[in-house]
């Protein structure tokens, strides 16, 4: 448990259904940002050395910058209802590696209702892919409707699976109000440019001091009642 200081790393959660491309996006972000920012990753996926190799081969992060968290078969619990293990992993990274700018927390593949607790991350990205069908944004769910950034991934597959990107864009806008949505293909854009830019901007803004307190693990003292972290989809 660290002493309080507002300069802790910005924490960004990356969630989304199985196979939507979370790990590939994490790799792309690390590749794009590792040269300019001090980055570390916490993964909640069933994590194998294969996954670690994937990130290592991608030339993005050394092993000591990646922490895996076991979720007891309940990936959404670990990022939303009981964030202890993830907070431990974040703290350990900060203790072992010193000051960091950005910690990406990748959720285990889950369904459309999974969201991150505000006690764990400052911002969250929700990743869906066109192969899941162009109805996904219309279906909504807390991930699609409340994530700070919605990424519609694998747009290169849209013609193959008959997904209408225009429909997805319109539905996403209707569901999300002013919250941004980006369309991405890592085949055509291996640097995930729009997402990278958004993340860079979040890091530049730093951590909201109020959030720095409540997402901090430690001190058993004053915090206002309305600062209590509860994700929108808790329960």
């Amino acid at each position: 448990m660290r002493p309080e200081h507002p300069a802790r790393a910005v924490r960004i959660g990356i969630g989304g259904p199985v196979g939507s491309g979370k790990t590939a996006l994490v790799a792309a972000l690390c590749r794009a940002l590792a040269g300019e920012l001090r980055v570390a990753v916490v993964t909640n996926d069933i994590y194998t050395t294969e996954d670690a190799d994937f990130l290592r081969r991608a030339g993005v992060l050394p092993d000591d910058r990646i922490r895996a968290v076991e979720t007891g078969c309940c990936p959404h619990t670990a990022i939303r209802d009981d964030i202890s293990a993830n907070l431990d992993a974040v703290e350990e990274l900060e203790e072992d590696l010193g000051e960091l700018d950005l910690i990406l927390v990748e959720s285990g593949g889950d369904n459309l209702t999974a969201t991150f607790s505000k006690g764990l991350v400052d911002h969250q990205i929700f990743v869906v892919d066109v192969a899941g069908g162009d109805k996904v944004p219309r279906k909504g769910g807390p991930g699609v409707t409340t994530a700070d950034l919605l990424v519609v991934n694998k747009t290169d597959l849209a013609p193959l699976v008959g997904a209408d990107l225009g429909v997805m864009a319109r539905d996403a806008a209707a569901r999300r109000g002013n919250l941004p949505t980006v369309f991405l293909t890592l085949v055509g854009d291996p640097g995930a440019e729009p997402v990278t830019a958004w993340v860079r901007d979040r890091v530049a803004h730093g951590v909201d001091p109020a959030a720095a307190d409540h997402a901090e693990s430690a001190p058993p003292h004053t915090h206002s009642a309305n600062a209590e972290p509860h994700g929108a989809g808790a329960g």
Partner: peptide, 11 residues
């Protein structure tokens, strides 16, 4: 059991 104290991840 829902106390957020990490128990769910231990068997």
């Amino acid at each position: 059991g829902r106390l957020p104290a990490g128990a769910h991840a231990h068997s």
